[in-house]
Design a protein around this nucleic acid. Structure first.
Length: 812
RNA sequence: GCCGGGAUGGCGGAACAGGUAGACGCGUUGGUCUCAAAAACCAAUGAUCGCAAGAUCGUGGGGGUUCGAUUCCCCCUCCCGGCACCA
């Protein structure tokens, strides 16, 4: 019996070898087909990795190693998304400078990741906080600015007092901050915005061209929220102005019985009569103070105030009372709606609350109990102009929408429009640890720095504590803030960019990480892009993945990148849960530290187990017993091939014959492992390798060729041990570029197969046949079976069905 | 409420394209080795009945299509994730 495999020594040896020999360095080579495989790079948090984090990294590593052996030129890089809140919160907590803690955290992450034997090209390592990196983040911002896609605005923002910063809509969940779960309130502030709304249509269209999980695409579609309808003009006689409302149901215009403005709508003041002023003012103030949490979560019953004035319905001239209510949002559509309580549930509830009239214009529902909103089968009624010149009556809803939209356009009372839920991206943060904006304010107007002045470095500050006032820490750096720019006195922008900025384009920098002239060389870009496979967590479905696509579309329009979409195929890895089945967290005490796993079982065993646990995309609980099982498998492989002293066993002979049965299994295994890796079904690939191992162990001797092939097949999963065995087999070179084994379909085919015999759908026996057996001979064989005879006794065979090489079904 | 994904032995999970459900691993039980234990190795292992041959049941629940359904169709329950007054 061989002594236990010494994973520590072997793994250290090969990690050093790969590093010293730059085994995984990617060099552009137009002769070879490229494969760009990317992980979502991590924030180097202070906690280090837990066993769930590397799941995706292990998966991409297996693909990367497999593709190299398949002859692809593989780009597989890693870096650090090190700006932003987590790093800064940690720095604040520990009182050390973020630059210092960030550097330390990166060292720890790098150590942990390298310990897993991942085949990254470390020469391409990048760090978003490096001026040589964020120089180009700032450069992209300048391009956005010049294209008119970056602008400043005084807007009601999501202010998080606890974090001392504003947050993007995407970072606010149920009225709380995505990070830390702190309350968020709405206050108006001057902010930088990026006009992502200009790209709503483009971002939507691009989703049709990528191979992403349908769920993620749907999430983005919903977030963009395209909605077709019509803008309709309503006259306001009291101020002699007209107001535009957006509706997706212009067909119900005859059913409008009142109008509602958002409390923030600019017309509110002028539309309020004196007798209502106090009441309206109070309502507006209250709405302004409410957090989104209160407004959307807690308050389900409708509130509002009648302003005392009226609007004129353009189709029939009727007077509609104008109300304000916070169920109408200023940030969507036009901030004003026509209310059709008969055919909109929210309006119906509001009308019920305030006793407003309900008019039925679509037949088919019971308006006593709820609004009727069937927009497919409903038939129009009560929908004609007073003079009878125009009518929708009798039409189905879709036809009515068409007809009235054309009528609105002809009469100048409205037009077909499209609105989006997506809002512009709030792009500034009142924090220290982020990219400075390459902008100087002169006379309160922003002027862009010239590209030659980049990078604009983040000044080294002693006091980087966020202020509760929202005054950014950088405003304390007066020497830095006050500049003379183009002969005038100006002030630098003191907000910084959000976390997402650096990750919006890092995949481009990986292509050309050391370039000082440009962010990336366009020839290299067109060779390597797009990213062929991108693996990361689902939590980035609408944040990172939408922002990065937006920048990429802009860069494409500007001619800086060759593809419209950056990420061709996307996979979301699942979570690894604690052994108790709940999410791993410090407070639950169920966190598994990979350092301990590596120490005890080694990187190969951990890689193997994480891939064996189940489908990559699914969440599944950690299991220490399972971890031991994978470790045991590797030890078995090792002892199958080596003696106590580590030399190869005598029963591995290069000229030993392989028997047909084992050879068949070998070829079946090559096929299954190859196919499964390509489909990312690592768990079944591993189980097939286990099956082959079990068979190999029953043989007194193994052919050298079999052993060689087996090692190559196992190597993407357990690269250290396989390199070691490979070397002991007498190879001087790494196996990382050895050709991937080929299989022979002929040799993989079984000589005799067992097929089931069913009688009336129940399995009653099985027969041994040659593949491709015909129905008649199969039936003959089946009839010899005593159990089959028993069931057929005295009955007529009505029909037989042969499923090729599967089963024979007899109907009696 | 809407959208997406799920539910298979004691556990993680397999199952081509409607064709032998439970591969592989874990766990458990029995055995070998040992003074003993651990480790390792060998064997058994969905449930029920049976000495056995074999039978019946069985993929969240209920119906349907089919010679045959984990797989297709209809209805329902529960779990996970996301969105949520978006006009």
């Amino acid at each position: 019996m061989a002594v236990d495999y010494d994973h520590k020594t072997v793994e250290k040896k090969w990690q050093t070898f790969w590093e010293d020999n730059k085994t995984f360095k990617a060099v552009q080579d137009p002769q070879k087909e490229k494969y760009y495989i990317l992980d979502m790079f991590p924030y180097p948090s202070s906690h280090g990795l837990h066993v769930g984090h590397p799941l995706g990294y292990i998966a991409t590593d297996i693909i990367a190693r497999h593709k190299r052996m398949k002859g692809f030129n593989v780009l597989h890089p890693m870096g650090w998304d090190a700006f932003g809140l987590p790093a800064e919160q940690y720095a604040l907590k520990t009182g050390t400078h973020p630059a210092e803690t960030t550097a330390r955290n990166i060292d720890n992450f790098r150590r942990q990741i390298k310990g897993l034997g991942l085949s990254y090209d470390w020469d391409r390592e990048i760090n978003t906080t490096d001026p040589n990196y964020y120089r180009w983040t700032q450069w992209i911002f300048l391009q956005l600015f010049k294209k008119g896609l970056a602008y400043e605005a005084e807007v009601p923002v999501n202010w998080c007092p606890e974090l001392g910063t504003v947050l993007a809509n995407e970072e606010v969940i149920d009225g709380k901050s995505e990070r830390g779960g702190h309350p968020v309130i709405r206050v108006p502030m001057r902010q930088w915005m990026l006009k992502i709304t200009d790209y709503a249509e483009s971002l939507l269209a691009g989703l049709n061209d990528v191979d992403w999980p349908e769920g993620i695409k749907e999430l983005q579609r919903n977030w963009i929220g395209r909605s077709e309808g019509a803008d309709v003009e309503f006259h306001l006689p009291s101020i002699d102005e007209s107001i535009t409302v957006f509706t997706t149901r212009p067909d119900t215009l005859f059913g409008a019985t009142y109008m509602v403005l958002s409390p923030e709508h600019p017309f509110v003041d002028r539309l309020t009569i004196d007798g209502k002023r106090g009441e309206a003012q109070a309502y507006v103030n209250e709405a302004a103070r409410k957090s989104d949490l209160v407004r959307t979560e807690l308050e389900k019953e409708k509130t509002g105030v009648f302003l005392g004035t009226h609007a004129i319905n353009p189709v029939n001239g009727e007077e509609l009372p104008v109300w304000i209510s916070d169920y109408v949002l200023m940030t969507y559509g036009t901030g004003a709606i026509m209310a059709v309580p008969g055919h909109d549930q929210r309006d119906w509830e509001f009308a019920g609350e305030f006793n407003l009239s309900i008019v039925e214009v679509v037949k088919g529902g019971d308006l006593e109990t709820e609004a009727f909103v069937d927009n497919e089968n409903g038939v129009m009624m009560n929908s004609a102009t007073p003079d009878g010149s125009f009518s929708l009556n009798g039409l189905k809803v879709p036809a009515a929408i068409q007809k009235i939209t054309s009528w609105l356009e002809e009469t100048g009372k409205g037009r077909a429009t499209v609105h989006y839920k997506l809002r512009d991206w709030l792009f500034s943060r009142q924090r220290y640890w982020g990219e400075p904006f390459p902008v100087v304010h002169i006379d309160r107007k922003p002027a862009p720095l010239s590209e030659a002045d980049l990078p604009l470095e983040l000044p080294d500050l002693e006091d980087y504590q966020p202020a509760e006032t929202g005054n950014p820490p950088l405003s304390n750096a007066t020497d830095w803030v006050n500049v003379t720019f183009e002969g005038k006195k100006g002030k630098r922008e003191t907000n910084t960019m959000p976390q997402w900025a650096g990750s919006c384009w890092y995949y481009l920098r990986f292509i050309d990480p050391q370039n000082d002239e440009v962010g990336w060389d366009s020839e290299k870009e067109s060779y390597w892009m797009p990213v062929d496979l991108y693996i990361g967590g689902q939590e980035h479905a609408v944040l990172h993945l939408l922002y990065a696509r937006f920048w990429h579309h802009v860069l494409h329009d500007l001619g800086y990148v060759s593809t419209r979409e950056p990420f061709k195929k996307l996979i979301n890895q699942g979570m690894i849960l604690g052994e108790d089945g709940s999410k791993m967290s410090k407070s639950k005490g169920n966190v598994i530290n990979p350092d301990e796993i590596l120490e005890e079982y080694g990187a190969d065993a951990m890689r193997l187990f994480e891939m064996f646990m189940g489908p990559l995309e699914k969440s599944k609980p950690w299991s220490t017993a399972g971890m031991k099982g994978s470790h045991r498998f590797l030890k078995r492989v090792w002892s199958m091939m080596t003696n106590d002293d580590g030399t190869l066993r005598d029963n591995i002979e290069s000229d030993a014959e392989i028997d047909d049965e084992l050879n068949r299994l070998l070829h079946q295994t090559i096929k299954k492992v190859t196919d499964d890796i390509e489909e990312l079904k690592f768990n079944t690939a591993i189980s097939q390798l286990m099956t082959l191992t079990n068979a190999m162990k029953t043989r007194p001797s193994l052919s050298g060729n079999l052993v060689k092939t087996f090692i190559l097949l196992l190597s993407p999963f357990a690269p250290h041990m396989c390199e070691e065995l490979w070397q002991r087999l007498g190879h001087a070179e790494t196996l990382a570029y050895s050709p991937w084994p080929e299989y022979d379909d002929e040799l993989a085919r079984e000589e005799l197969i067992t097929i089931a015999v069913q009688i009336n759908g129940k399995r009653r026996g099985e027969i041994e046949v040659a593949p491709g057996v015909d129905e008649k001979s199969a039936l003959m064989l089946a009839l010899e079976q005593s159990n089959v005879k028993r069931y057929l006794d005295g009955k007529d065979i009505k029909k037989t069905i042969l499923v090729k090489d599967r089963l024979l079904s007899i109907v009696v």
